[in-house]
């Protein structure tokens, strides 16, 4: 069990003279996450009544409280309402994807896709590119480039480094937490206590830390976009 600790299963595929490799387990698990989210979305969608006058059903109440929670906790950090409305689906999808990914490690034979740096880095870079594009769109190209010379021109390298450090710390935080939790659970269950303790540890790292980190990831997404657009 421990001989493959910290390693991952990689599939090498060669199509003609084009070859590529990917982490097969991670990709399958992210498909599972997507399937779970789509099923949940379908269930919630079915509960959404068409008639406004109708009394809300149970699933609709769940959907509404979910949307209220996302809006109140995540979107309220946006300084502009328009941007918040526009980015609500994106941030919510990021949050739910990371949350379900983290929670997936609780199920046996499943592992979190966020255990893989590729997944977290792709999300973080997506957020980074998005924030820069939004900053250019909201402030204009020249003012955006001028922003790197603030407050003094010699701070330019520092500003660039701090911008680049954002996606790195963003992705490594999620990756480190999930991966560290998984390693800890594996080591404890293989070396110290094979029963009961790993379950509790797994619940703690998978459910509690997973939820916190998903929230942190989403709120940092909001904060990075907001800072890039504002300053």
């Amino acid at each position: 069990m421990l001989e493959h600790l910290g390693e991952k299963l990689i599939l090498h595929v060669t199509l003609g003279n084009f070859s590529f490799s990917f982490d097969i387990l991670t990709v399958i698990m992210s498909w599972v996450v997507i399937a779970v989210l789509v099923v949940v979305a379908l269930i919630l969608r079915r509960g959404l009544g068409q008639d406004i006058e109708e009394k809300p059903s149970r699933t609709q109440a769940i959907l509404e409280s979910l949307i209220d929670l996302l809006k109140g906790q995540l979107m309220s950090s946006f300084s502009s309402d328009k941007l918040a409305r526009e980015l609500f689906p994106f941030v919510s999808t990021v949050f739910m994807f990371v949350l379900v990914s983290n929670w997936l490690s609780v199920i046996p034979y499943c592992e979190s896709p966020t255990k893989d740096l590729n997944v977290t880095l792709s999300l973080a870079l997506l957020v980074f590119v998005m924030s820069q594009l939004l900053a250019v769109r909201m402030r204009g190209g020249i003012r955006y480039l001028k922003g790197f010379l603030e407050p003094y021109p010699f701070m330019l390298p520092l500003n660039i480094v701090s911008e680049i450090a954002k996606p790195i710390s963003h992705s490594f935080r999620l990756f480190g937490n999930t991966f560290g939790g998984a390693i800890l659970v594996t080591v404890v269950s293989a070396k110290f206590a094979p029963v009961l303790v790993p379950a509790a540890l797994n619940a703690f790292y998978g459910l509690f830390v997973g939820a916190i980190q998903a929230f942190v990831f989403a709120i940092l997404t909001v904060a990075y976009i907001n800072v890039a657009v504002e300053s």
């Binding site: 309220s76 935080r173 942190v216």
Partner: peptide, 20 residues
């Protein structure tokens, strides 16, 4: 609570770097 979690997440960066 929201600001606290955000601040802790940013403070945690150094810890995460060392973990990495």
């Amino acid at each position: 609570l929201r600001t606290m979690v955000l601040g802790q997440a940013i403070t945690e960066s150094t810890g995460i770097y060392s973990l990495v």
